[in-house]
């Protein structure tokens, strides 16, 4: 059962027909071939599929594609601006916050959203803000460092553009 929807993804507008039982994750990955967003559990526990829905992070595995009608989505592919990495992307690279990289897209989106709502988070706030993003590789140490450093860069307006 298909439904026509119109929505934007990373500021691009799309009008497509989606199956009513396909979740947003599947629509993004299979119909739009935006495969940066990952599927780790299909149950909203691991956070690998985190995207922004109208600026707020959600587990795209638990959103029906049809529900995106009329809304704005941001995925990991939309974080860099004009080919320049966002601060959180830069610091994740520099501080070693990514290993296998499979949780990384979701971690980046969740961290980006955290910094939008709290530009100067404490260590405890960073950790609590990432509790919905499981990482099995890093032990979270470098991810927390990267978020802290990205916050500092953004607050001090250090340009992310070299």
């Amino acid at each position: 059962m298909k439904h026509d929807i119109t929505f934007t993804v990373n500021d691009e507008s799309y009008s497509i027909a989606v199956e009513s039982h396909h979740n947003l994750l599947r629509v993004l990955r299979e119909q739009l071939v935006l495969t940066g967003t990952k599927n780790g559990c299909s149950e909203g526990e691991c956070g690998a599929c985190t995207v922004l829905l109208d600026g707020e992070p959600v587990n795209s595995c638990l959103v029906l594609g049809v529900e995106a009608d009329g809304h704005a989505i941001t995925t990991v592919e939309g974080l860099a601006v004009d080919g320049h990495l966002a601060p959180i992307q830069q610091t994740m690279v520099e501080l070693g916050g990514t290993q296998c990289g499979f949780c990384t897209p979701g971690v980046l989106i969740a961290s980006h959203a955290l910094l939008l709502r709290n530009p100067d988070p404490s260590e405890a706030e960073i950790r609590a803000g990432l509790v919905g993003n499981l990482c099995r590789c890093t032990g979270y140490v470098r991810i927390v460092d990267a978020v802290r450093e990205a916050a500092r860069m953004q607050r001090t307006s250090v340009s992310p553009i070299p």
Binding site: R29, V33, L34, T35, G36, T37, K38, N39, T75, V76, E77, L79, A80, L85, Q89, M92, V93, E94, G96, T98, Q99, G101, F102, T104, P105, L108
Partner: peptide
């Protein structure tokens, strides 16, 4: 050195099996 493939990973561009078309 930072890991050589990390830019692709933070951009969502690194391809895993399920990402292949």
């Amino acid at each position: 050195f930072p890991r050589v493939e990390s830019n692709a990973k933070v951009m969502g561009a690194a391809q895993y099996v399920d990402d292949m078309q």
